[in-house]
Amino acid sequence: MRLKTLIRQIFNDSKQSAGARTVVTILANKHEITLTRYLVSKFMKGMGLMSCQLKTCLNGAWWALVSQTLPIAL
């Protein structure tokens, strides 16, 4: 689905730091697509995408979060 691909691209372009609210804003401003943050959150959860800011990732759980978002096959 094109929408899920776009959400994944936005998430990856943000270096896995964009949450649902940020993705919704980027979709609205750059792509003129209006979605609720709840729907985007549901898509992200279904795709296994979890936002991770640098300050929260330094506690040792960083690699566990990153490894969950890495694509299996390119």
Rank of each mutant, 00 (worst) to 15 (best):
L74E: 13
C52M: 12
I7L: 04
D13V: 02
W63M: 10
C52A: 11
H31V: 05
S67E: 15
L6E: 13
L70D: 09
G46I: 06
C52G: 03
T5N: 14
I26G: 02
T56P: 01
R8Y: 03
G46P: 06
T34M: 08
W62N: 08
A73T: 10
W62G: 11
K4N: 15
I10F: 00
F11G: 01
T25C: 04
L70G: 02
L3M: 12
R2W: 07
A64Y: 07
M47Y: 03
T34G: 02
K42Q: 15
L65H: 13
T56F: 11
I26N: 02
I72A: 11
L39A: 14
F11D: 00
T36M: 02
S41E: 12
K42S: 14
T69Y: 03
L58T: 12
G19V: 00
Q9W: 05
K55E: 13
M47S: 08
W62Y: 06
L65Y: 11
M50E: 12
A18D: 09
A20I: 01
I10Y: 00
Q9V: 05
A64Q: 11
L74A: 11
T69E: 07
T34N: 09
N12W: 08
S51L: 02
L3E: 08
T56W: 08
T56M: 08
L54W: 07
C57F: 06
L49K: 04
I26M: 04
S41D: 12
T25Y: 07
L39W: 04
L74H: 10
I26K: 05
R21F: 04
K42G: 11
Y38Q: 13
V66H: 09
I33N: 00
I10T: 03
S51G: 10
F11P: 00
T36L: 03
V23W: 00
I26H: 02
L35Y: 06
